[in-house]
Simulated assay, not measured.
Amino acid sequence: MSYIDTFIRVAEDCPVERGGTPVSERPLLPAHVIQYNLLAGAPYHYNHEELLYQVHVRHKGIPEEDRETRREEIWTELFSKSHPCLRASMLPKKYGWGIHYDTEGKIALYAKESPQYDHFTSGGEAGVKLLNAMRNKRR
């Protein structure tokens, strides 16, 4: 699912008060670490589908040359099934990152303690829909 003009707030039961950098010791990085690396390094560069694709090829360790030559095949296979939106990502659920989709659906991260996060969550940006990230635990 892709959003436009939407801000995903940190989950109500997020265990941190500040946006933290997710890390992993595993050779193949988990999806949330790849999401963070891509979005932190290039705010408003990726839309949801492109982010999913980039996370997928990195997570699966698909070589760069295959990413180019087999892009359409990989893309078609990837999107032949549904995928969760970023409301379910560990970034807003565990690591304290709000997620903004601009008018073109391009994505940027904002730390929970940042003035930009406050700006979006206080309704400071007209026309931006506010959603909560999914909770970590059921009520």
Rank of each mutant, 00 (worst) to 15 (best):
R67Q: 15
V33T: 09
L91D: 09
L29N: 08
W97Y: 03
A108G: 12
Y36S: 09
G61D: 05
Y44W: 07
K94T: 02
I99E: 02
G19K: 01
C14R: 08
P92T: 04
E17T: 09
P15Y: 03
P63L: 08
R70V: 03
Y101S: 10
K106E: 10
K94F: 14
D66H: 07
V57K: 04
Y117G: 09
E77V: 01
Y44A: 01
E17G: 02
S122Q: 14
L91K: 00
E50L: 14
R135Y: 03
A11I: 02
C14V: 04
Y36R: 12
S114K: 11
H32L: 08
P30E: 09
E77T: 04
F79T: 00
P92W: 10
Y101W: 11
A108K: 13
R71T: 06
S89N: 02
T103Q: 03
A40M: 07
H32M: 05
P15M: 00
P15I: 01
D5A: 02
T6P: 11
R58F: 01
R18N: 10
H59V: 02
Y46F: 14
L78C: 06
L131P: 13
D5K: 09
A11F: 07
G105H: 06
C85R: 00
V55L: 01
K129I: 12
R67M: 06
E25R: 10
A111R: 11
L130W: 05
Y53D: 09
L52A: 04
M134H: 13
E49Y: 13
E77M: 05
D13L: 05
E50T: 07
S89C: 12
G19H: 00
K137D: 09
Y101M: 11
R18A: 04
K129R: 15
V55Q: 01
T6K: 07
K94Q: 11
R26D: 13
E64N: 10
R9C: 14
G41R: 11
V16K: 04
W75S: 08
I99A: 13
P92C: 08
T69Y: 05
T69A: 14
E72G: 04
Y3E: 13
R70P: 02
Q54P: 00
Y3T: 03
A11G: 07
R70F: 02
G41L: 08
S89W: 03
G41T: 06
D102L: 06
D66P: 07
K137G: 10
D102H: 10
E17V: 03
E17Y: 00
D118L: 13
L109P: 14
K106H: 13
E49L: 04
K129N: 15
A126P: 14
